[in-house]
Every structure is written in C-alpha cells, then in structure tokens.
Computed example of a mutant assay.
Amino acid sequence: MKIAFGCDHGGFVLKAEIIDYLKKNGHEIIDFGIDENKSVDYPDYGVPVAECVSAGEADFGIIACGTGIGISIAANKVPGIRCALLSDTFSAHATREHNDANMMALGGRTIGPGLAVDIVATFLNTSFSGDARHQRRIDKITAIEKKYSK
C-alpha cells in the first residue's frame, strides 16, 4: 500500500517508529514531514496528506500532532476525507470496518510509539465491511460534505 504521512512537532516522536513499521511491512511512504523537531503549524502538514489521499495518490494517510485533534480537524476539511482520531485498537478496527476511514490521526503527547504502531497495524489490516447500513451512513456524510462544500 501507498501511505502518506505527515506530522507537526507534537507528533514527531511517533514518526520514526511508524515509518519504520510501515517500511518493514512493505508499504511505500509519501513523507510530507516534518524532518526535524521544530515548532510548525499542523494544518501545513495534515492538509497535504489529506489532499494526497483525496486525489487517490495514496491509499491511506497517517497524521500526528500533540493530541491528534487539530491535525484531524484540518484534514477533515478536505473533501473525500474521513479521518479518525485514534487512541486505541478497537476504535482503529471500528473506523475502518464501519466508517471506511481513509486517514487516521494520532497524538504524540497522548500515546506512546508502541501503541501507535499497534493502532496503525490494526487500521491498515482492517477492511470496510461493505454492510448496507454502514454504506448508507457514509453516503449521508458524503451528502453533508457536498452540501457545505463550495
């Protein structure tokens, strides 16, 4: 799979372990940074990842900031993105199976690298169920997005 990755300084602590895991498991990485631990603005890194996923240039996106909140809010402004803020493997499984999430956000100050890798593995190894009830709900989300996108 092709995975886009981006983080700010708050998510930088997770970057090396996540990218190492992805590469060891045969994934191609599109790295949007950051490359050094310096203060930056999370929209500048989350949105390019979301645009890459929305354009079909990557299969999934992984983003991180201090809590994962700000960067996920920014990513979810990009049409076609369903980015879930994750802090446990159950939610990682559920958001793929039920919501067909195409991006995930993590908090570098709220979870450690080991748990982050477990969450990434669960997310990437879970497929969308395709159940009619879940697709119906995703279609409603898409309709909301279209209504408010100008």
Rank of each mutant, 00 (worst) to 15 (best):
I81M: 03
G26T: 09
P113Y: 13
G130E: 12
I63T: 03
I144M: 14
N37G: 02
T122M: 15
P48S: 02
I29F: 11
G10F: 10
S149H: 13
R136M: 13
Y148S: 14
S87K: 14
E17M: 15
I63F: 06
E57A: 09
V40S: 13
S39I: 07
N37I: 03
N76M: 05
A116I: 02
G26V: 04
G66Y: 07
Y148F: 15
T67H: 06
D20E: 15
V40F: 11
R82F: 06
L22T: 01
R96T: 13
C52D: 09
L85K: 08
E36T: 12
D31N: 07
G130A: 12
Y42S: 05
I119W: 03
I29E: 07
K15I: 00
D41R: 10
C7L: 06
D41L: 08
R136D: 14
F123V: 09
A50H: 01
L14T: 00
T67I: 04
Y148D: 13
Y45E: 04
R109Y: 06
Y148A: 14
G56C: 10
I119S: 06
A64M: 00
I71G: 05
I34S: 08
S149I: 12
N99A: 07
A101I: 05
K147W: 08
A55Y: 02
N102Q: 11
N99C: 08
A143W: 11
V47Q: 10
M104T: 14
I30E: 09
N76E: 04
A75F: 06
E57H: 13
V53W: 02
G26A: 07
G10P: 08
M1E: 01
L14E: 01
I18E: 03
N102V: 10
R82H: 01
A58F: 10
S87T: 06
I71N: 01
L22I: 08
R96H: 15
A75S: 07
Y45H: 02
F123D: 00
D118L: 13
S54D: 00
I71P: 03
M104R: 07
